[in-house]
Write a protein that binds this DNA or RNA. Structure first.
Lengths: 334, 334
DNA sequence: CCCGAGAACTAAAAGGTTTTCGGAAACGTA
DNA sequence: TACGTTTCCGAAAACCTTTTAGTTCTCGGG
């Protein structure tokens, strides 16, 4: 922890030139003699000079810093989005300021002000679910991009997983395996994710001219609910030969309960989960076929579009990102 | 996205005072008449003035921003530490800059330079394991605190979980339940966490005058290894009545395999895990008794000590933080 | 020797805020 | 009225960098 930080002034005087020349030499500008440039660079290296980003930002109005505002980073979904974004930024020279509002609107406003006073170039808002959330973009002097949870204002830029398409993809896989008696167990109805996935199922079944077995079972996103629903389903609809679950947790619970009741997976019943939460999907037996929402890619894409928006090339609207199916043992061919 | 940002100059001219007076009024300084102060505050509110943190930081040399440098935030352990730190900072007016080096030393240096050029007031380094890691603090102009993974330089400030104590606590719990034939299944030997936990076990057994059943089984941190080790252990040492596992994943695997071999948990064998990774520890059946490392608290504490260090009150050395035992069904009284 | 052109360099301003110090006004006292 | 004190306010410097608009230097040609 040394004393005063070294400034471009120190570099200039060590090199025996003016500040202006030193600046030009360091920034690779043209009108400076090669020998002079070398002298300046040597001086900068000797003093291990680091230009002060605050001064630079004050002057240019660009901080090369973006804010990442998350409602609930404890959640399963914020983290990969966050990592993807950080990844996209890290590649360049951008820095990321992380703020967690803990689902509190007041705190969110507070963090927003903190970010703006630090003059970030843009903001990514990461939702905790795919339910639309209140927009924060009104009258903001910087662009905002929403990731995972879309803004409720269609003028904003949002990136969300295509849950309808992902669910349809899963069900088409079951149909391709020859399964025709397909049931659906999922999370709470007030989650748009649950409703979208049920809708994807409906579309895929309709396209195949197939009927869903039983009603959709709405519950919670837990393993416990998966077990409970399994018991209800196997009692009411014993002839079911495939179950599409709204999450890997539900699927893991279902598989466990089904096995206890003497139904083999995938022999008697094929099972597909959702989320590709690896600790569950790869470690349960059989390993779960599941839908992966490509959340890191989603985060990266959101970050790249924030760049574009900072450059004035915004693309308003809700952008749905393709999911992909990860096929594992729970839907192995019969 | 409006035009020019509003500055203290705009506030001053709207209020009809000089910028010096405006600044004093806004910052609650003494020598300004009450009526004047009110006029300035009203003007600031009307223009929704946000002081430019860059200018302020440039002048004061304090940015009220800290860097969070993580080696691998995908990992299980970085996240809660990070959240705890963010929590501690968020309470005040601090902002957090997040950098993920992805385990790459070059990238780490790169991020370090980026943070320093932005003049952060301090840095927290979050390790990916409890193995000591190379220090970055040499000749840095700001204080650094290490969380979870300690620095290899004893002059630095590090906060790590007390794995020896946590393991001893777990084993004492088993002994208190009357179990005497205790075995140990854990992760790879090159993890200090694994070695520390084995050491805690040794100490607790020795204090009770008890012998460990079989050799410690070193493997990986996976459920698969837990299952595999269970088969080996139950074959070789059928009289075992308790197993202390080095992680919840291992414990979950053990429980599953033991049940398949007809051993009931906790009836025949009590099981304790480590980490309190909730998706595993609460959802397996029976729910796992496990050691919680209080990682959020650890992160918060590290952040608070970074504050202290910024104020010049550093406390060098490796600080070990108490763990606590979460008792669930897998060690219910026989 | 002088001039002009081009290359190389520098002084100064700008960016927004805080702080220091000097000045002005108001007021009380001699 | 003259003077000292207190209260309030404003001019200017400082923080560090980049850029603009000169200014000096170099050198070839007339």
């Amino acid at each position: 922890m040394a004393g005063r930080r070294v400034t471009i002034n120190d570099v200039a005087s060590l090199a025996g030139v003016s500040i202006a020349t030193a600046s030009k030499a360091l920034n690779g500008r043209q009108d400076v003699r090669a020998s002079t440039r070398e002298r300046v660079l040597a001086a900068a290296a000797e003093l291990s000079f680091q230009p002060n980003a605050l001064a630079r930002g004050l002057l240019s109005g660009q901080t090369r810093t973006v804010g990442l505002l998350t409602s609930d980073s404890v959640g399963r979904f914020g983290i990969p989005v966050l990592l993807g974004a950080e990844d996209a930024f890290g590649a360049g020279e951008m820095a990321v300021m992380l703020c967690d509002a803990r689902g509190d609107a007041i705190r969110e406003q507070h963090h927003l002000r903190a970010l703006l006073s630090r003059r970030v170039d843009g903001i990514i808002v990461v939702g905790e679910s795919t339910n639309p959330r209140p927009s924060v973009s009104k009258d903001l002097p910087v662009p905002v991009v929403y990731a995972y949870g879309p803004s409720d204002d269609p003028e904003d830029v949002s990136f969300v997983p295509d849950d309808v398409g992902g669910a349809a993809m899963a069900v088409e896989h079951l149909l391709a395996l020859g399964r025709r008696r397909i049931a659906h167990i999922t999370g709470p109805r007030h989650y748009k994710a649950a409703r979208d996935r049920a809708e994807g199922l409906r579309i895929a079944l309709e396209a195949a001219g197939c009927e869903q077995v039983g009603e959709t079972l709405w519950g919670s996103w837990s393993q416990r609910w998966g077990r409970h629903a399994a018991e209800m389903l196997l009692m009411a609809e014993p002839e079911v030969d495939a179950v599409f679950c709204g999450s890997d947790q539900v699927a893991a619970g279902f598989v466990e309960a089904a096995r206890e009741r003497g139904r083999s997976v995938p022999g008697d019943i094929a099972v597909i989960g959702y989320d590709n939460w690896e600790v569950l999907s790869t470690e349960t037996r059989p390993a779960l076929t599941t839908v992966d929402m490509n959340l890191e890619l989603l985060g990266r894409t959101a970050a790249q579009h924030l760049f574009a928006a900072i450059d004035g090339r915004a693309t308003p609207g809700v952008h749905r990102m393709r999911c992909h199916l990860v096929i594992r043992d729970s839907t192995a061919a019969a």
